[in-house]
Each structure stands twice: as C-alpha cells, then as structure tokens.
C-alpha cells in the first residue's frame, strides 16, 4: 500500500510544552484517515504539521520527518507554497472570505497564476459540482458567500480547497459547527472525494469516524496510541485505552 505521507518520530513543542511525542504514522493514498482522541491531545496540532500551518506560530519547534511523496516537507529547500497547494485544508468553522461565492473559489487558482476567465469559470463550475453545491448557488455566484447557510459555507470552503487541485485534504472537525443534516451531506461528500483525494479528518464524533474512515488513529496526550484499519480499531483494538475511549468509558 502506498503511503502518501509518512510521519517519522515527529516531536512538536510549543515553547517548552511538548504537544506531540514520537508520532509515527502512515497516511495512505486515496483513503480517509480519521484522527480521534480527547480534547487537547494534539490532533489539530498534528494535522497542522502536515501543511506547515504551525509555522505561523512563533514558539513552535518541530523535530522528526514528515515525508510527502518521499520528500521531507520540513527540509530547508522545500517550497511551502507548493506544499500548501498540494495539501489543502478545511477548517472547523466555515471560513469563506468576505467576497462573492465566485471570488472565493477563484482566489486560489488566481494565486497560482490562472487568470483566464473561461478557465476560472470552468473551475468554479467543476468544484461546486464536486461538492454538490452547484445547483443551489449557480444563480447567485456573484452574491456574498456569507449569505450561505453554515453547511453550504463549509461545502464552499471544500470547493475552494479543491480549486487549487490538491492531492491531500486536511479537515479539522469540518462538521462540528453543522447540524446533523448538513453533517451527513458532508460525510457523503467525503465518500465521493476519496476516490480522487487522500483525506485526513479530525473528528470528535465516533460514529462519524466509524462511518467514513478507512483508517483511524487514536491520540492521547500528544502520542499516537494506535493506528489501524477503522474496523479493527472499533471492533478489536490492541490497546485497552483505545477501547476505553471508543466505548466512552474514558475519563
């Protein structure tokens, strides 16, 4: 099986506080990997090492390797712009720009040098169709994205992410701000997307992890306790702590 991302002995510190300890993991191509674990265990921190969003925080220090297609993304000469084009991110709170729906989607492609109107139009249509939003918004592409519902906004954010043609999509609790119906729509969207993209998703929702993911990784206090196929993690985990957490017996 092809490990799209290989994480080796990753340690991360916020100043003197160690948030990740000796994390080793493979993230497989065109699969959904779910990250679960109690609040504050380092899921978001880990996710943000994969597209180097932690670079924004001054106090962060990182040791270890994150190999994307066998290249270390923390190597000095690694192009961070290319990295983020390749590794897209969807955030917990839908965060469309205060611009029109259309402008939201073409923002990324424009940054990466596409200015041809026709091409941009195509991208908008393709990505909105991919997230099943096209029919709902095709008549109001020039309207502010803020006018959409939360679930629509989140799908727009996914479309915006797809517009730069990433290979990997990182999602940090993408449905935690949404109602159950919108959540289900995003989940079925994930099942479509995984045919083309590698997906890593953080979730607090055990059912969600069980429903959508192929692999599940359980984090606890900055360490990965166990990573395995989701079915195994949920039915027959190796580690007692994993079992306790999944069955809700966790403190």
């Amino acid at each position: 099986m092809n490990a799209k991302i290989k994480i080796e002995n990753l340690n991360l510190y916020y100043g003197s506080f160690q948030a990740l300890t000796d994390v080793n993991m493979n993230i497989y191509e065109k699969k959904i990997t779910a990250l679960i674990g109690p609040s504050g265990c380092g899921k978001s921190t880990f996710l943000r090492t994969l597209n180097r969003m932690n670079d924004l925080i001054d106090s962060v220090r990182i040791k270890g390797n994150v190999l994307l297609d066998y290249k270390d993304i923390y190597a000095k000469d690694y192009d961070i712009i290319k990295l983020r084009k390749k590794v897209g991110m969807v955030f917990q709170k839908p965060n469309p720009f205060p611009k029109s729906i259309y402008e939201n989607i073409v923002y990324g492609p424009r940054i990466h040098g596409i200015n041809d109107k026709q091409k941009l139009d195509e991208i908008v249509e393709r990505t909105l169709k991919e997230v099943a939003l096209w029919d709902e918004v095709k008549d109001r592409l020039k309207k502010p994205a803020m006018g959409l519902s939360g679930g629509q906004q989140q799908r727009l954010c996914i479309a915006r992410c797809l517009a730069v043609e990433p290979e990997i999509i990182l999602m940090d609790e993408p449905t935690s701000a949404l109602d159950p119906v919108a959540t289900l729509r995003i989940e079925s969207l994930l099942e479509e997307l995984v045919r083309k993209y590698t997906i890593v998703i953080v979730t607090h929702n055990m059912q969600q992890a069980g429903r959508v993911s192929d692999y599940t990784s359980f984090f606890l206090s900055g360490r990965v306790i166990e990573t395995d196929e989701t079915d195994i993690i949920f039915s027959n985990p190796d580690n007692k702590k994993t079992e306790d957490y999944i069955t809700g017996r966790f403190g």
Binding site: K82, L83, R84, F91, F97, P98, Y107, G108, I111, R160
Partner: peptide, 27 residues
C-alpha cells in the same frame, strides 16, 4: 480581521504579501 481568513488564504498557498493585499486589507 478574523485570523480564519488569513489561515484560509495561507492554506491555499498564498504568500504573506498576497494574503495582506488580497484578503486582509479588503476585509
């Protein structure tokens, strides 16, 4: 300007200058 906008822009591969001129200042 909410940090979320800035993060979204950077996560799309925009550099700092693009983020400032195209997102932060307009917002």
């Amino acid at each position: 300007v909410p940090i979320e906008y800035k993060e979204a822009s950077l996560a799309l591969g925009a550099n700092r200058q693009e983020t400032i001129t195209r997102i932060l200042v307009p917002a």
